[in-house]
């Protein structure tokens, strides 16, 4: 196999992995402090793509600004959703699960009614290729990888270094003990939920020019995010990053030998292996 192809496949895998990671980080963050498995998380990604389409194709706003706007819009939407749909069921796994499923379907249907079912494409932000080590890479894909890395590192710093990050980790470990230290649980949950949704939206915006946008695009990244979280360990941020890199690489190399649908199966094979040999995931607690 020639080197160029190998490098390109690696970059592709890296890009997919990074996008999955950003989606999964939001999902696992929300799970770790609220015990909510949010099936509507994919819809936040889809809404991000939608915002990107409207703002870039209809209004021609600069893409960086679109990224920020989409994160704010979807983040605020997430905060509202948390307050009215999830807060009443806090701590109850099953009701929250059903609420999130209902929410996912509702958002999808509403989008469908307003947007239609057609695929829409978003024009490339960074056209052209770049020559690196003798191989040609799409600038767009490199930009996506770099932006995702910036997001991941920023999130890491926020969680590890900031006061609010400390509070988030405290709630994840022991909600009552956190409250006893003076942490406003409602406010932190609200912030975290909004942040998680904003991350999903960011992923949706970033990948929109590479793929296409329609009301159904949230399903696949949600599924990938679940695979990553199970692989990396529920609630573990490091696990999500490592899991994402593994899944992205495996799938991307899988397409060299298998058809795309078949390579999509690789994720499930990974899950089965993890559940058999290390049910708590690579970095799971307990």
């Amino acid at each position: 196999m020639d080197m160029t192809l190998l490098l390109q496949v690696t970059l592709n895998g890296l890009m997919l992995g990074m996008i999955y990671i950003v989606v999964a980080l939001g999902l696992t963050l929300i799970f770790s402090i609220m015990n909510v498995i949010n099936f509507a998380h994919g819809e936040m990604y889809m809404l991000g793509g939608l915002v990107a389409y409207y703002f870039s194709e209809q209004l021609q706003i600069p893409y960086m600004l679109i990224l920020v706007l989409a994160m704010i819009l979807v983040g605020v939407f997430g905060i509202v959703v948390e307050k009215f749909f999830f807060r009443p069921f806090r701590g109850e796994l099953l009701p929250a699960l059903i609420v999130s499923l209902g929410l996912s379907m509702t958002i999808q249907t509403l989008t469908l009614l307003n947007f239609g079912t057609e695929d829409q494409s978003v024009s490339t932000v960074f056209p052209g290729m770049i020559n690196f080590l003798g191989a040609l890479f799409s600038k767009e894909r490199l930009a996506i990888v770099i932006t995702c890395i910036v997001f991941i590192l920023s999130l890491y710093l926020l969680i590890q270094r900031s006061k609010i990050g400390c509070a988030i980790r405290a709630i994840a470990e022991d909600r009552e003990a956190a409250a006893l230290q003076g942490v406003n649980i409602d406010r932190i949950c609200s912030f975290t939920f909004g942040l998680g949704c904003a991350l999903a939206a960011a992923a949706g915006v970033l990948i929109a020019p590479v793929f296409y946008v329609n009301p159904y695009i949230g399903g696949l990244p949600l599924l990938k995010a679940f695979i990553i979280i199970i692989l990396g360990g529920m609630g573990s941020l490091l696990g999500a990053v490592v899991g994402g890199l593994i899944l992205g690489t495996v799938e991307s190399f899988g397409t060299l030998f298998l058809s795309v649908p078949a390579s999509n199966l690789l994720g499930f094979i990974i899950i089965i292996l993890v559940l058999l040999f290390k049910p708590s995931g690579l970095f799971g607690h307990e």
Binding site: A170, E173, D174, A177, A178
Partner: peptide
């Protein structure tokens, strides 16, 4: 009771 530290911190 039981200290309830944040044990991973």
């Amino acid at each position: 009771e039981g200290k309830r530290l944040f044990s991973r911190m």
